[in-house]
């Protein structure tokens, strides 16, 4: 399982009601259902991913996140999750507002664009970074709103969002450096949020 997904489970309570935005092939939903007895729904727009969710017997709903979450009531989920999808949204700040409206708590993960590899790539080659985690060219990437750790911190402050936990994870862990300078050495950011 992707490393950010593995970390997330510690913040999900047994038997809670969850909503997974951009649930992909349902790996996380299925894992949480099997291990934490959660119930809930996944939202996805990719046809093949939806098919795989159906094969797994998950509640998957075809819905574009940029259309908002108008069909979900205030505080109707214990946790609203969104893993590695923030950077693909047209209006990430608005979706974040919606997540905090619908969920009592939220968990967001995204690739940290401030990671040293990205900085090095841009600084030395003068071109947009392409890596294992972000294997796209600038013109065909679904990732249209990159941000760094610090950027996200600023957004949370501006929106008066409470950060319950923050964590960075790397596929190959460079623990000390990562903990000392997360914006430079953290590949993936994981935020556990709630309203103030």
């Amino acid at each position: 399982m992707r490393i950010d997904l593995n970390e997330i489970q510690h913040w999900i309570k047994q038997g809670s009601r969850i909503l997974d935005l951009g649930c992909g092939d349902g790996t996380l939903l299925k894992f949480l259902h099997d291990n934490k007895q959660t119930e809930g729904y996944g939202l996805e727009i990719d046809a093949e991913q939806i098919n795989i969710c159906i094969d797994k017997g998950l509640n998957v709903i075809e819905q574009n996140l940029d259309r908002g979450l108008g069909n979900f009531a205030d505080n109707s989920f214990d946790t609203v999750l969104m893993t590695q999808a923030l950077q693909t949204l047209h209006f990430p700040h608005k979706v974040l507002d919606e997540m905090l409206r619908v969920g009592k708590e939220c968990i967001v993960t995204f690739p940290n664009f401030g990671h040293w590899k990205a900085r090095y790539h841009l600084a030395t080659r003068g071109r947009m970074p392409v890596s294992d985690l972000l294997p796209y060219e600038w013109y065909n990437t679904p990732n249209i709103h990159f941000c760094t750790f610090k950027d996200f911190e600023v957004l949370c402050r501006e929106k008066n969002i409470k950060v319950i936990h923050r964590q960075v994870v790397n596929e190959q862990s460079v623990q000390l450096l990562k903990d000392a300078m997360p914006n430079l050495f953290g590949e993936t950011a994981i935020y556990h949020l709630s309203k103030q």
Binding site: R17, E39, Y41, A47, I50, C53, I54, L58, N59, V60, I61, E62, Q63, N71, F72, A73, S76
Partner: peptide
């Protein structure tokens, strides 16, 4: 169909939806 799905979600029922 969105209205059907929203009502089912509101009632906390299992639902899969494809457009």
């Amino acid at each position: 169909s969105h209205e059907i799905v929203s009502a089912l979600i509101g009632a906390n029922k299992a639902v899969t939806y494809a457009e």
